[in-house]
């Protein structure tokens, strides 16, 4: 298979074959992280910029490690949104960065579409590292990778996504990706946190946690997006936790070999209890490990695209 895309702006726009190609490529890259010499020369001489307008440790670090393990040079730019509102526009920042000739720019931004705007301005590849409530494609890819790794296949899986769906780019990207496969997707949360028209995407909305996870193969819990005003959608964190926090006793309703996922960072004691987060069903740390492999695959494929 050939790769032709310059950018990874979202799961939207990827075919099923392209998604599988990324996952398959990631399989090969994952082994590198398990060796003593955790580096290959593949992207030697390439420059990867991470341009983060939102605070993030894990995604930025994951991309940085991925790039470094491929021998690319990485430069991290943390643009704080406050100084950016006062000063330079994204367009000017993009042009300035472009002048430094990066090969890939990874952008995280609080506003949907910012990566798309960047991609129109710059010639280098752009990877969406999360844009507002829109998409977080590499997170969805690493989630699918982990599901496939643990379950052997994506087809036939029942996946329950629990939490602040309306503000969640992770939920959106996962839904867009999982729709390509024969999966049953249930989104569960208080009605205020489930966006209208979910059914149009083939997703079943559900307000009862217990019903949502019944017979589930995968439970994905999400955090309340405080920075996107998520708190105003529920009376209190405490009440939310009582009704939608995932506890160990819930897991008996799901399939025996259910896996519990969380994109992080977790709010322990709110959407997920300690005994679940640290329990045998949890694959949360596998997600982190797989994230590096998936991001290596993405960087590799974008740079190796057909001219």
């Amino acid at each position: 298979m050939k790769w032709t895309k310059k950018d990874l702006l979202g799961i939207t726009g990827l075919s099923k074959e392209e998604i599988l190609f990324i996952l398959d490529t990631a399989e090969s890259f994952r082994d590198i992280s398990r060796r003593d010499v955790k580096k290959v020369p593949t992207l030697r001489g390439k420059t990867v910029i991470t341009l983060f307008y939102e605070p993030s440790t894990r995604t930025r670090t994951s991309f940085e490690i991925a790039a470094k393990r491929l021998s690319a040079d990485t430069i991290n730019i943390a643009a704080s949104t406050s100084s950016y509102v006062k000063g330079e526009t994204l367009k000017d920042t993009a042009k300035t960065l472009e002048a430094m000739k990066p090969d890939v720019t990874i952008i995280r931004h609080s506003m949907p579409g910012a990566p798309h705007m960047l991609a129109k301005i710059v010639e280098s590849s752009v990877v969406n590292g999360g844009d507002g409530a829109h998409e977080h494609p590499t997170q969805a890819l690493l989630d699918l990778f982990t599901m496939r790794e643990k379950k052997g296949t994506l087809d036939g899986l029942k996946i329950a996504i629990i939490g602040d769906i309306i503000h969640s780019r992770v939920a959106r990207s996962n839904i867009f990706a999982l729709r390509h496969f024969d999966t049953e997707i249930i989104c569960c949360g208080p009605p205020t946190m489930l966006p209208p028209h979910l059914e149009d995407l083939g997703v079943k909305p559900e307000h009862s946690l217990e019903k949502a996870i019944r017979n589930a193969d995968v439970i994905m819990t999400l955090r309340i997006q405080k920075e996107r005003g998520g708190v105003a959608y529920i009376p209190s964190i405490k009440e939310y936790s009582t009704m939608f926090g995932l506890r160990k006793e819930h897991l008996s309703k799901a399939k025996k070999d259910v896996i519990v996922m969380h994109p992080g960072p977790m709010n322990r004691g709110i959407e997920i209890m300690d005994d679940v987060a640290d329990g045998t069903s949890s694959v949360i740390l596998d997600q982190v490990e797989n994230g590096v492999a998936v991001r290596m695959a993405v960087l590799y494929l974008l740079l190796g695209r057909e001219a």
Partner: peptide
């Protein structure tokens, strides 16, 4: 507009 497109774009 709040509808299917906004669900896809994640725009408020």
């Amino acid at each position: 507009h709040e509808g299917r497109a906004s669900l896809l774009s994640g725009l408020d």
